Amino acid sequence: MAFDWFRKKPSTDSIDNGVKLITVAHPTSPTSEEFRTIRTNIHFMSVDHEIKTVAFTSAHQSEGKSTVTANVAVTWALEGKKVLFIDADMRRPTIHKTFGLSNRQGLTTILSSHDSQIRLDTFIQKSGIDNMSILTSGPIPPNPSELLSSERMNTFVQSVRNAYDIVVLDVPPILEVPDTQVLSAHLDGLVLVVREGKTRKDDVARTVDMLRLSKTNILGYVMNDHKGKNSGYGYGYGYGYTSDK
């Protein structure tokens, strides 16, 4: 597999327009079935270790993590789970665009508040999908790294963990924002999104090493834009990572 030896400017399409909710628009399509398979595989990982807080990330920007996160979150809601979907990617938020919601307040508002008690219903919005609630990122703050890695963020995630069947977070790319490691270590699990033909193998290795150092529970990886036998593009799920060529 060949890679460009220079990195192109990340696409802004998901920031400008949101991501495609294939699981809503085409629920019976093969791609939607692949997202349901990802959900099912994560269920299998929870036999001995309950998974109620899970994040999806990538090595770098524009590798498809927000599309994967949103669609897998939808499959949980359609399954009947009570879902809270949190946009924790404060620099490049997409969820409010995807669901057509206001982003005047959200996660950053909660984390930057000095109030000891916060009414979540003030910030959590309806997604338009049964069983699924949304917490947008809120206004882009001057200190996203400090907010994301704060003890207040960890406390908040643990509090909503008890109120929902599953809490899904779209978090910043690991190699772009190192403090994502701090948050991920406090979650039940993390899934790494890899884009075929774009994500470099050495970047995947670095990402996995960083997550292992923080003792993050890596549930597996999603291969985005995987070209199959029929020349179609889809998603594949796997476990672990090997550096073998």
Score class of each variant (00 low, 15 high):
residue 56 F to W: 01
residue 234 G to H: 09
residue 211 L to W: 07
residue 65 K to S: 07
residue 53 T to M: 11
residue 16 D to R: 15
residue 190 L to S: 05
residue 101 L to C: 09
residue 221 Y to S: 15
residue 140 I to Q: 12
residue 36 R to C: 01
residue 213 L to Y: 07
residue 132 M to F: 04
residue 67 T to E: 14
residue 76 W to Q: 11
residue 114 H to M: 08
residue 177 V to F: 03
residue 25 A to T: 14
residue 212 R to S: 04
residue 237 Y to F: 15
residue 203 D to S: 11
residue 51 I to H: 09
residue 194 V to Q: 07
residue 137 S to W: 07
residue 91 R to S: 10
residue 131 N to V: 02
residue 63 E to W: 13
residue 196 E to T: 08
residue 89 D to T: 10
residue 12 T to Q: 14
residue 114 H to Y: 07
residue 158 Q to D: 09
residue 68 V to E: 04
residue 5 W to P: 04
residue 187 L to V: 01
residue 209 D to C: 04
residue 143 N to Q: 06
residue 212 R to I: 00
residue 60 H to N: 12
residue 85 F to D: 07
residue 137 S to F: 08
residue 223 M to S: 11
residue 188 D to L: 00
residue 32 S to L: 03
residue 87 D to Q: 09
residue 26 H to C: 03
residue 171 V to E: 07
residue 55 A to K: 06
residue 17 N to D: 12
residue 11 S to N: 12
residue 129 I to F: 02
residue 153 M to S: 10
residue 235 Y to H: 13
residue 68 V to H: 02
residue 23 T to C: 11
residue 66 S to W: 06
residue 191 V to P: 06
residue 74 V to L: 11
residue 80 G to D: 04
residue 21 L to Y: 05
residue 186 H to E: 05
residue 62 S to N: 14
residue 211 L to T: 09
residue 71 N to G: 09
residue 122 T to A: 08
residue 185 A to C: 02
residue 188 D to V: 00
residue 228 G to A: 05
residue 145 S to M: 01
residue 213 L to M: 12
residue 177 V to E: 01
residue 74 V to Q: 08
residue 244 D to T: 15
residue 132 M to N: 08
residue 63 E to Y: 12
residue 136 T to Y: 13
residue 196 E to V: 10
residue 23 T to D: 07
residue 118 I to M: 10
residue 178 P to F: 00
residue 35 F to T: 06
residue 69 T to D: 05
residue 101 L to D: 11
residue 172 P to A: 10
residue 38 I to R: 12
residue 116 S to C: 00
residue 126 K to I: 06
residue 90 M to A: 08
residue 219 L to K: 11
residue 22 I to M: 03
residue 155 T to M: 08
residue 129 I to R: 01
residue 211 L to K: 07
residue 182 V to M: 00
residue 30 P to C: 01
residue 201 K to N: 13
residue 63 E to M: 10
residue 69 T to Y: 04
residue 130 D to W: 00
residue 181 Q to C: 14
residue 26 H to N: 13
residue 154 N to T: 14
residue 186 H to D: 06
residue 124 I to L: 10
residue 25 A to N: 14
residue 238 G to F: 06
residue 77 A to F: 11
residue 186 H to F: 02
residue 147 L to A: 03
residue 219 L to I: 14
residue 51 I to V: 15
residue 171 V to F: 08
residue 167 V to I: 08
residue 236 G to L: 14
residue 194 V to K: 09
residue 71 N to D: 07
residue 151 E to S: 13
residue 102 S to A: 13
residue 204 V to D: 11
residue 151 E to N: 12
residue 32 S to Q: 05
residue 48 D to L: 04
residue 23 T to E: 06
residue 51 I to D: 09
residue 69 T to E: 05
residue 64 G to R: 04
residue 57 T to G: 00
residue 90 M to H: 08
residue 240 G to N: 13
residue 59 A to V: 03
residue 37 T to A: 12
residue 70 A to H: 02
residue 231 S to N: 14
residue 13 D to M: 13
residue 42 I to F: 09
residue 28 T to V: 00
residue 31 T to W: 00
residue 98 T to E: 06
residue 97 K to V: 10
residue 117 Q to L: 05
residue 75 T to V: 06
residue 32 S to R: 03
residue 216 T to Y: 02
residue 225 D to T: 11
residue 208 V to S: 07
residue 102 S to P: 05
residue 178 P to M: 02
residue 195 R to L: 05
residue 12 T to L: 14
residue 200 R to H: 14
residue 147 L to R: 05
residue 163 A to Y: 04
residue 45 M to R: 15
residue 150 S to A: 06
residue 119 R to F: 14
residue 119 R to M: 13
